[in-house]
Design a protein around this nucleic acid. Sequence first.
RNA 1: GGAGACGUCGCAUAGUCCGGUCGAGUGCACCACCCUGCUAAGGUGGAGAGCCCUAUUAGGGCUCCGUGGGUUCAAAUCCCACCGUCUCCGCCA
Length: 421
Amino acid sequence: MIDVQLIRAAPEVVERSQRLRGERVEAVAEAAAADAERREAIAEFERLRAEQNAFGKRVAAADKAEKPALLAEVKQLSERVKAASERSSAAEAQAEAALAAIPNVVLDDVPPGGEDDYVVLREVGRRPAFDFEPRDHLALGELLGAIDMARGAKVSGARFYYLRGIGARLELGLMQLGLNRALEAGFTPLITPTLVKPEIMQGTGFLGAHADEVYRLEADDLYLTGTSEVALAGYHADEILDVSTGPLRYAGWSTCYRREAGSHGKDTRGIIRVHQFDKLEMFSYIDPADAEAEHARLLALQEAMLTDLGLAYRVIDTAAGDLGTSAARKYDVEAWVPTQGAYRELTSTSNCTTFQARRLNIRYRAESGRTAPVATLNGTLATTRWIVALLETHQRADGSVAVPEVLRPYLGGLEVLEPAS
RNA sequence: GGAGACGUCGCAUAGUCCGGUCGAGUGCACCACCCUGCUAAGGUGGAGAGCCCUAUUAGGGCUCCGUGGGUUCAAAUCCCACCGUCUCCGCCA
């Protein structure tokens, strides 16, 4: 939810953002009109209500003889209050809906355009060169006995898989590595619920344009989350936080579920795009003034992970049209995947400014003593997909895979993953 | 799954039977000041959230007693539904 003040005081800023995102510019004027209507209806209701309250006091104080006359008089007032109240709450709901239809206002220097209009900020690391024909991650995963797609499909259908043996250990090791780094950086680990209530899903902005990406459990009216960001953001919903001594930082681990609707035929091989995977996610609640600096910190933590795992990557600044509803800016770190000859997203970090917090009612006490919404940021620290880049990058001619040094402690000191016999 | 109890302003509680004098008392914690020869005790005062209006650091109004409905001129208080917590019983990975 954007700040309604912005609609009143500087609608042109919001309109610019809508234009950059390729969203409806008229939505701004509509929200402004709905807001004006809402305020008018509220004022009317409150005026009548005050009158009624004053009357109530007189009725209470009146003696038996004069009560009937007073009651007769106030009865019709009560009718008007009721009507005004209904008008006012309808206007309120409408204003809220109009405002909710507007995604977060993008930051000033976010690149304009759509999915392909990202700006590459930097490329880091050396892409691997092979003097043999490199195998793709699934071939390697099968050779190592690490990934079993066939049985995943048998049990659960397409885009499901088993991680087995060294594959399972690799995933857990990756998560452990990320978790330890998060701990060092002051994040509190959190294992989160993966089923959440509608209002939390709504509040984090995942039921907007991409609602069909989300699994829903009809019988229980719960949603399966596609990222622990949802539970991490919901964690402090309706709370007033003390961020005066620094941000609140959490590292959430969870299994993530995505329907992948509309991606039929894309990335059908292996574990690049699957319905279920694990993810370690960083999440910060912070004074809005410090949000951009925090965004840089999250990105730095992500880059350090990739670098230390020996992965070549690039950082892109996502264009406005490709931002999620809640994000004001988003950086993706994409690893080089040799057999695809392409960079593929391994991490994503978004600055949601106060957008999520306003919807979820998460506030802090500003210096003025008033409450104000905090800023929230999120960023990936490890996911199942990382295995793809790891296996492909560090493979050898015989199908074995070198283990990056930072990962070895989590695999019992193992230096090389050997093909299963 | 069954039965019962409960949900009040940071925490703990009063108020609910018998609707108006309750947006709400008390204790603790908190803030300011006073007192006190020292981080204690005591005294006085302040202090919730959201929204609207006038205004701009101040004032006025409205809403909020788990959530949502209903009854009523009027609901923390009566009725209904839902959610949550606790206790007991049953069942179970």
